[in-house]
Design a protein around this nucleic acid. Structure first.
Lengths: 155, 155
DNA sequence: CTCATTGCAAAGGATTTGCACTAAT
DNA sequence: ATTAGTGCAAATCCTTTGCAATGAG
């Protein structure tokens, strides 16, 4: 019963806050919340255009603010000069595997890591708030793609 | 004998690359490489002014590019809308404790973490490249400062 | 009907670039 | 002498803001 699509939880959240449910907001939320990639604003606008929706830049940024404040998405910065966004998974401290080729993300948890961060923080006199671990690499699919491409080039 | 100040290693690196050693570059490198905080470009320019040096913005950014390329510093983005920079420590995979109050950084290593990242990457079919772990919290000093401040307010 | 959102265009802020000038090797 | 760096100002690029028109509740 808590298994509704994420975008519907956003709908519900908007209602609770007495905020209007506009088609723009819902389209943006739908794309952002169901994406497996970290999308930039530009990519998002393109994707919206692909669905036949022309949404103003300002609206996209403003909707992203709402999604950030409500905790449905989080922002990421890969040092590209602009931000990317990804759906917030329910995990309290999510660790990630990030593919440096396609940008896709897989998540995992490791209880030992949790313990370790507490131990290290204590040892250094820190009051621990949270942590973040990212392992960068090439995902299965991209490895295969690369192999195929080079095999093709060789033949 | 590998114990020269870091800025001197930058001098040496510049010479090796047949790049001019200008006073601006050396001043910027000196500040950035000896800082215990993550400096922004604005802070850097202020600090230079404090030393009586007026350096153009473009030069600062260009020198930072050199320092980044040469691996002497790394950039950090705290989502403030601008970048901060910190000296690159020699550790191949440095894990960090970052104080969310003052921005200071302490580093540590954990061999178990290294093993774990390899294990997780393998399990997910990733070719691991590198990883990054940051534990956010409040450092000892800031805890004490906060305690003092609230004690003062209470009295 | 009322209040928040939308879209456009203009503004803002960090970073980059073009260019004439100066300095390092 | 060459070659690269410097400073300035103009230009870029992402993001935000002002405002009249529009749409949701």
């Amino acid at each position: 019963m808590a298994d509704q699509p994420v975008v519907d939880r956003f709908r519900a959240w908007l209602s609770e806050q007495h905020l209007p449910l506009t088609p723009q907001r819902l389209a943006i939320a739908d794309l952002l919340l169901s994406s497996d990639r970290h999308l930039s604003v530009e990519e998002l606008i393109d994707a919206l255009a692909g669905r036949g929706l022309k949404v103003g830049t300002a609206t996209v940024y403003r909707t992203i603010d709402v999604l950030l404040e409500s905790g449905f998405i989080v922002e990421r910065d890969r040092g590209e000069g602009f931000r990317r966004f990804e759906p917030m998974r329910g995990l309290p401290h999510h660790e990630q595997l990030l593919c440096t080729a396609c940008g896709c993300v897989e998540e995992f948890r490791d209880p030992a890591l949790e313990r370790m961060t507490h131990r290290v923080a204590d040892a250094h006199g820190f009051v621990r708030e949270r942590h973040r671990l990212v392992i960068y690499g090439i995902c299965n699919e991209c490895q295969r793609a690369a192999a195929t491409a080079s095999a093709g080039a060789r033949s």
